[in-house]
């Protein structure tokens, strides 16, 4: 029954937590820039506002894909907090993103099209590292199930420092933070307008935003797994990681897609090196 509670709690609480995190993020970003910044609840106002707007579309199909995106993001997050198989979760997660990309393709608009292509490059950049991270957890805990990974008493981070660093790199991509916010961004994004979300408006855009909240909570949960042996340290570590991401977001300029792809893949190499050493140690019968 525990798994059901986890999933339901995620489905209900994640948007709230995700929205709050986004609010804190904006507040901290503003402070880093010497501004006051918006109210803490600003992300909720934004989404609420979007639901109040008129429904305007380029093609009706776009709503379908975005809805599918939201549902599958929520599903993969729910699976995660239900303690499911990490690989399955990763694949469901990819499926969700493919839907978002298809929504952007469906509208037949130049900006949205470039956004979609760049989003796919991002997927290509981060996917190997996520799979590798799942494998890393398996090597440490002997299971792909989140329940069991979370229950290990082994400090995963000590065995997987390279994997963690690699994951931190692709986390920047996933959180749509500079320098890898190439497909769309929360900041003004003039060269391709709003990229993948250019043609989404009103409630459709709100769904994208909510999906993003779900996604962020899920990703932070993923980070937590590295520190799961001690919940207190875990929460602190997640917070520090997120702060570091905000910091990076504020001190770097947007890179080109080549850099994003290379960084993602190099990060994966780091992870592979880590796992290679780890499996060598295990074979050696440490």
């Amino acid at each position: 029954m525990n798994w059901l509670i986890g999933a339901v709690l995620f489905l209900i609480l994640a948007p709230i937590a995700g929205g709050l995190i986004a609010g804190i993020d904006r507040k901290i970003t503003a402070r880093m820039q010497g501004r006051v910044g918006p109210p803490l609840l600003q992300p909720f106002y934004d989404v609420g506002k979007l639901f109040e707007k008129e429904r305007a579309v380029v093609t009706t199909a776009q709503n379908f894909y975005v809805l599918a995106y939201l549902i599958f993001i929520a599903l993969s997050g729910a699976l995660f907090f239900a303690g499911g198989d990490l690989l399955l979760i990763v694949f469901a997660f990819t499926l969700a993103h493919v839907f978002l990309v298809l929504g952007a393709y469906a509208v037949h608009s130049p900006y949205s099209h470039i956004g979609a292509e760049r989003e796919l490059i991002q997927v290509m950049a981060y996917e190997p590292m996520i799979i590798l991270a799942a494998v890393g957890f398996y090597m440490v805990s002997g299971s792909f199930y989140v329940t069991e990974i979370a229950a290990t008493t082994v400090p995963a981070i000590l065995y997987l420092p390279g994997v963690f660093l690699g994951f931190a790199v692709i986390l920047t991509i996933k959180l749509r933070k500079s320098p890898f916010d190439i497909s769309t961004s929360h900041h003004a994004h003039q060269e391709i307008v709003k990229g993948i979300t250019t043609e989404f408006s009103g409630s459709t855009l709100a769904q994208v935003e909510i999906a993003h909240w779900y996604e962020n909570v899920f990703l932070l949960g993923f980070v937590f797994l590295f520190f799961a042996w001690n919940p207190v340290i875990g929460v602190v570590a997640v917070a520090i990681t997120y702060l570091a991401e905000i910091f990076v977001d504020n001190v770097t300029a947007r890179a080109r897609w080549q850099a994003a792809l290379k960084s993602g893949w190099l990060a994966t190499l780091l992870g592979i090196a880590n796992l290679a050493i780890l499996s060598y140690m295990m074979l050696g019968g440490a």
Binding site: V58, T59, A61, Y65, T94, V98, V101, L102, A104, Y105, A106, V107, H108, A116, E117, L120, I121, V123, M124, E127
Partner: peptide, 14 residues
């Protein structure tokens, strides 16, 4: 994922 999804995208462009 990259090469299939971009093909899919072409198909579904309205």
């Amino acid at each position: 994922v990259f090469f299939w999804a971009k093909w899919m995208g072409k198909l579904v462009t309205v």
